[in-house]
């Protein structure tokens, strides 16, 4: 019995390792056709699901050399500047009219840029407010008020992301669009709602880091006549700096992978945004909206995006956990 129990718990623990490795390997295998086809140019190519002509009539995609791929993409970029909006219709016409061999190309630039920009907007918005809340909870509010506000902030974190999406689309976005102009679904509104979502998360971890400051240090500073602001700026902040940076990076990792709230608000079109109020798409939203219909190379390209997202968030979380939060302890 003893032995069985120990073996069971050991294998459950190893399951974590197996699942993570499994995710990585599975995504890689599923993305392999797209990786072979597009290589690293996938990251800088802005065209998604676009039919292009193949110069020589062989459409054997696996034998297409990477060099040929490059020239194709260059042609693409030039054609792109002519007309962006009518792209799809043009492609359809082309396909109908002539029987020139075509193939569909996929590039990940638009969702990658969309993911990064929404995350940056969310961080810029959430950072000052989260720091303010953390300071309020850790240093300013009396214990009982701090507890109540703390629970309220944590409840905000517990609200399902799909609720943030609906509220954001119907109530928050119209106000933002009135204030800043542009579309109701845009980088800006998606980023701001994402900011509201990561705010409680960031505030909670920052508060915990701030609470680790020894009270002897704080009291000595007060005794020297420092104001609360000076104590926070010169004592608490330097002391908990590493933990705070860790919390910011963790929040960043969470914002990168958020799907549902962004899906309502980003507009879901594969077009590079020119302004902050333009609609675009992010990696999780591209997956959520296109996975059902995709097949073959298109599905593989989505897995390629998933792999990129997984690797980025894996790296970011590792840095936050191992470098910053470990040192904070």
């Amino acid at each position: 019995m003893e032995k069985i129990f120990q073996k069971l718990s050991l294998s459950s623990a190893s399951l974590v390792f197996v699942i993570l490795l499994g995710i990585f390997i599975t995504l890689f295998i599923a993305a392999k056709p797209a990786i072979d086809e597009f290589g690293f140019n996938f990251i800088i190519n802005p065209d998604w699901n676009k039919e292009v002509q193949v110069e020589n009539s062989s459409i054997d995609s696996t034998s297409t050399s990477i060099q040929e791929n490059d020239t194709l993409e260059d042609d693409e970029m030039i054609a792109d500047e002519d007309d962006m909006m009518l792209e799809d219709e043009d492609d359809m016409m082309m396909e109908d009219e002539d029987d020139i061999a075509t193939k569909t190309i996929y590039g990940g630039l638009v969702p990658i840029v969309g993911t990064l920009l929404t995350t940056i907007i969310a961080l810029i918005f959430a950072l000052p407010i989260a720091m303010g809340i953390a300071v309020f909870l850790a240093e300013i509010a009396p214990k009982n008020i701090s507890n109540i506000v703390g629970i309220a902030i944590e409840l905000l974190a517990a609200i399902p992301s799909i609720i943030f999406g609906m509220w954001g689309l119907y109530y928050f976005a119209p106000i933002i669009a009135d204030l800043f102009g542009g579309y109701q679904v845009s980088l800006l509104t998606a980023g701001l709602v994402l900011g509201v979502m990561i705010l409680p998360f960031m505030a909670a971890i920052t508060r915990d880091s701030m609470n680790t400051t020894p009270s002897v240090l704080k009291e000595s500073a007060y005794a020297l006549g420092a104001t609360k602001f000076e104590v926070i700026k010169d004592i608490i902040f330097p002391y908990s700096k590493v933990g705070i940076i860790g919390s910011i990076i963790l929040a960043l990792g969470r914002a990168l992978g958020e799907t549902m709230a962004v899906a309502f608000l980003i507009g879901s079109i594969f077009v590079l945004p020119q302004k902050i109020t333009d609609p675009t798409i992010s990696i999780p939203v591209a997956m959520a909206n296109n996975f059902g219909e995709a097949s073959g190379l298109g599905e593989s390209a989505l897995f390629y995006l998933a792999l990129i997202l997984f690797v980025i968030s894996f790296a970011i979380i590792s840095v936050a956990k191992f470098y910053f939060l470990k040192r904070a302890k």
Binding site: F17, L20, I23, L27, G257, T259, L302, S313, K321, F322
Partner: peptide, 19 residues
């Protein structure tokens, strides 16, 4: 395992769906 579990906790949920 503890560290990997922490990483898994923050893995994007849509990626888990794809997996």
């Amino acid at each position: 395992i503890r560290d990997l579990s922490d990483i898994m906790m923050s893995a994007p949920s849509i990626v888990i769906g794809a997996f």
